[in-house]
Nucleic acid binder design. Structure first.
Lengths: 225, 225
DNA sequence: TGGAGGCGTTAAGAAATTGTTACCTGCCTC
DNA sequence: GAGGCAGGTAACAATTTCTTAACGCCTCCA
């Protein structure tokens, strides 16, 4: 999650500095703006990876700025999190409708802020990842053609093996137990013995080598991070 | 937000179809039921990610259905949004008490519905995410990956050791006696000698160093504050 | 000072979990 | 219908993890 740039737009300078300090500590690059107008200018200039936007501001308020951003081709896909003192639901719904991706009320807990930011970024990363080709390590897993490639080598895996590999690879590093794998790859109301997963894992390892899928004893399987 | 499944329970077929149309347009999968009874059956079968539940229905009304759902281990963690024509506050409070997570009055604005749904799902996703990784001292204990990290080092602990560490770390500073640890980590009706805990603690210390888990003589163990 | 209680440590055997192979069943192709 | 592939199951081997029991050390206190 390193090296992402975040634009913070707020008219309270102290808060701005505080947020900057905390974000930098987390390894983010930080840009600052004190009102909506300036915010948009800087956003167009630097294309940040995420915007933290206060709602109540002089010159141009956050809602308006976000509307402008959503109407700008260059900016409309940047995730936005609102900051606001107002916690009533009406504002929340309005804000989300206008194109915000999350909503945090002041006063802000740093931990919460960071985890929200990471959550939103993850969400964006994930939706982008819903692609047909997955490149992990030295493998290229092509869901369109149901083919796995490593360098010049091509592997034609049977469907289940392919889907199992794809499922695990698209969740790199995360452990999934056998039942989850069965539900996700085989389908929810299919009855198969869970050890079936083992056999398929073995077949994948046989073909690709055993350094991709890791066993976590007592838990399940995991694609190597 | 891709591929989430929503179960809609309402006795008005037209409304059901309308909601289905709108949700599908947003990329959700949709399940439908026309009364509480049917709703629960489908919920058990398909484990939707969220339930939209009408309150006034024949056979089994929404309140009752939600109570049933909250009493079912498989279903109790599924977020529920109530739909209702009644807009009086008393009903709302009752609905939320019964275990609803949000509340929308008819007639329904589609935009509003969607943004509420997204908001509720986000709320749920977040709590799950926060539970999955624990950062304490210089350790990062990732339950999703079943891995403990310290700087660049990675420790792959066996299941019991990992879970014991996780349990203690998530209650930093609090002492737990051996019996409690056995109940929480090993399970309530497992018979093992309590000194087993000692051995596991030792193994954790062996791998991570002995400055994380403290012994409280005559009482139990504690993760260092 | 010498039990008694509590804990650390170790090693060995038991238990649990996974790896691996062989075999069965459908289904498709030729 | 023979042969081959995909998928599933079952059985046994291999491995890892868990549990127990034993021993020794320390501290407290009569």
């Amino acid at each position: 999650m390193a090296n992402k740039t975040i634009l913070v737009v707020d008219d309270e300078k102290d808060l701005l500095d505080l947020i900057e300090y905390n974000l930098k500590k987390e390894g983010f690059s930080v840009l600052k703006a004190e009102n909506g107008e300036e915010g948009i200018k800087i956003a167009k200039e630097h294309k940040p990876d995420l915007v933290l936007m206060d709602i109540m501001m002089p010159k141009m308020d956050g809602m308006e700025a976000v509307e402008k951003m959503r109407g700008d081709d260059d900016l409309k896909s940047i995730p936005i999190i609102f900051l606001t003192a107002r916690s009533d639901e009406k504002t929340e719904v309005e804000g989300l409708n206008k194109g915000g991706d999350d909503y945090i009320t002041k006063p802000i807990s740093t931990t919460k802020l960071i985890s929200r930011i990471k959550a939103v970024m993850r969400r964006f990363d994930e939706t982008e990842e819903e692609v047909n080709r997955l490149d992990v390590h030295d493998l290229s897993i092509d869901k369109d053609r149901y083919i796995v490639t490593r360098g010049e080598e091509e592997f034609q895996l049977p469907r289940k093996e392919f889907e199992l590999l794809y499922y695990l690879a698209s969740r790199r590093g995360k452990v999934r137990d056998r039942q989850t794998l069965l539900n996700k790859v085989w389908g929810d109301n299919i009855y198969v013995v869970d050890r079936t997963v083992d056999v398929h894992v073995r077949k994948i390892r046989e073909k690709l080598g055993d350094h991709y899928i890791e066993t976590v004893k007592g838990v399940g399987y995991r694609f190597k991070e």
